[in-house]
Design a protein around this nucleic acid. Structure first.
Lengths: 218, 218
DNA sequence: TGATGAACATACTACCGGGTATGATGTCAA
DNA sequence: TTGACATCATACCCGGTAGTATGTTCATCA
C-alpha cells in the first residue's frame, strides 16, 4: 500500500506469513469446502490461532477472496506467456490448454477454491464492499475465459477447430479441463513425465472434443 | 419397511411429503451448498418448519444422503433402458451419454448434490451407521461409473472409440458431461428441441473427445 | 365416540464458529 | 532506553443452527 520505503526486509516476512495462511486456507477449503471450514481449522493447520489470521484478513470471506485471487493470478501467469506469444491460433490455443490443465493439477487446492467461488456464487450475506471485491474477481474470471474464447474463434476461423455454439463449447471445454481439480490424486514419487502424460490425455480429449483433426490433436 | 398391508392410501401421502422435502433440500443445496444450507432454509422453502423435516429424517446428514440416493436413482433409471438394450456398443454408449447429460439438465439440483457428495467426500463427523450409508452411496456411484466403463471398453475393442488410459478417459468424460450441472441456466419458454440441441453438442464434444470418428460422433 | 398414532408446529436447549477486545513479545528507530 | 508498531496469542461475546421435547390437529378404527 504505502510507498514501502520502510525496512525492505519486513514486508517479505509478512508476505510469507500471508502466503502460508493462503495455502492452509486453500487446503482446508479443498477438503471440506468453504463454509464447512472454520477459521480455527485453518489456524490449526498452521499450528497457530485465529489471531494470526484475523491480523491479516478482516473476515473469513476476505480470506476466501484472496485465495480466489491467488488462484486466478496463478492461472493468468501460467497462460499469459503462451497467449502473448506469436504462435499461430491453434498452437497458441493448444499451449494455453496445456498450461491451464497443468495448473489445475499443480495448484489443485487453489483451483478448487476458484471453482467453488465461481459456481457457488457466494451470494450470501456479504457487506457491500465485499460485494465489490467479489464482482471484480468474477470479472477476472470472465477475462480469463475471454482469453480462450478469442483464440478459439481464431481457430474456428482458420478451420483448425470445429464446433457449433461458442458458449457451450467453452463451458464444456473448461469442464473437461477442470476435471483433474477433482479426480486427480497426487501420487507418491510421481515424475514430471507422468504428470505431462495426464495433462496430454486431458488436453487431447479437449482438442478432439472441439473438433481438432486427429493429427493435430495428437 | 413393514409389509405395508396397512391403508394403501396413507403411505403415498407420506411419500409425496418426503419427495417435496427432497426437492426443496436439493434446491437449497444447489444454491448455497450443503453445509451452508440450514434445515430452516429447507423448511422455509416448503412454507413449513423444522418439525416436518425432522419427522421424516433423523438428521441433516440423512436428508443429504436421501437427496444423493434420489439423484443416483434418477441416473440409473435414465440410463438403464439403453444399457439393457441390445444395441451395438457404440450406439449403446452414445445413448447412455445422451440420457446422462439430459438427466444432468433436467434434475440439476439433485445432480449438483450428488456432485458435492462425490468429491467432497463428506468425511466429517458422521456416526458409524451414517458412514455405512455413505459408503453404500459411493458404491452406487462406482457401479454407475462401471456401466459406462464396460461399454466404453467394448467400443474401444471394436474400434469405434479410441483413447489411451481408461481411468483418465472416464473421469474426463464425466467431467465434460457433468458440466451442464453447473453452467446450464434454465431459460424461460425453452423448447424440448432447444434442450436436445444443448445435449447434442455436449455429447458430441464427449464422443469426439473419446476418439469417435467425425461421422459417428455427429 | 373415544383412543391411537401419523404428521406436523412451537418452543426450547446446547454448542459451534465468526468476530472482537486485549494482552504478550519482538523489532527497529531515534 | 524507550516508545511505537507489527505480529501474533488469549479470552471472551453472541448470533445462528442442529437437534429435542412437547403440544396440536386430524384421520382412522375398534
Amino acid at each position: 500500500m504505502k510507498p514501502a520505503l520502510t525496512a525492505p526486509e519486513v514486508r517479505p516476512i509478512a508476505q510469507n506469513s500471508r502466503e502460508e495462511i493462503l495455502r492452509a486456507a486453500a487446503a482446508c477449503f479443498m477438503e471440506r469446502g468453504y463454509s464447512a471450514s472454520s477459521i480455527d481449522d485453518v489456524a490449526r493447520r498452521l499450528g497457530a490461532t485465529k489471531g494470526r489470521i484475523y491480523h491479516h484478513y478482516p473476515s473469513k470471506a476476505d480470506l476466501f477472496f484472496d485465495v480466489y485471487r491467488m488462484g486466478m493470478d496463478l492461472n493468468f501467469s501460467a497462460v499469459g506467456d503462451v497467449y502473448h506469444s506469436d504462435l499461430g491460433p491453434y498452437d497458441k490455443f493448444f499451449g494455453m490448454c496445456r498450461a491451464h490443465v497443468m495448473m489445475m493439477i499443480e495448484e489443485q487446492a487453489f483451483q478448487r477454491t476458484v471453482w467453488e467461488g465461481v459456481n457457488l456464487h457466494l451470494n450470501s450475506a456479504t457487506t457491500p464492499d465485499q460485494r465489490v471485491v467479489l464482482e471484480r474477481l468474477l470479472k477476472m474470471r470472465a477475462e480469463y475465459d475471454q482469453l480462450f474464447r478469442t483464440v478459439m474463434e481464431a481457430c474456428k476461423a482458420d478451420g483448425s477447430l470445429n464446433y457449433k455454439n461458442q458458449s457451450i463449447a467453452v463451458s464444456t471445454l473448461f469442464a473437461a479441463m477442470g476435471g483433474p481439480v477433482f479426480w486427480y490424486k497426487p501420487r507418491q514419487g510421481e515424475t514430471a513425465t507422468q504428470l505431462e502424460n495426464i495433462v496430454d490425455q486431458v488436453v487431447r480429449f479437449a482438442m478432439r472434443g472441439l473438433g481438432a483433426s486427429e493429427r493435430t490433436a495428437a
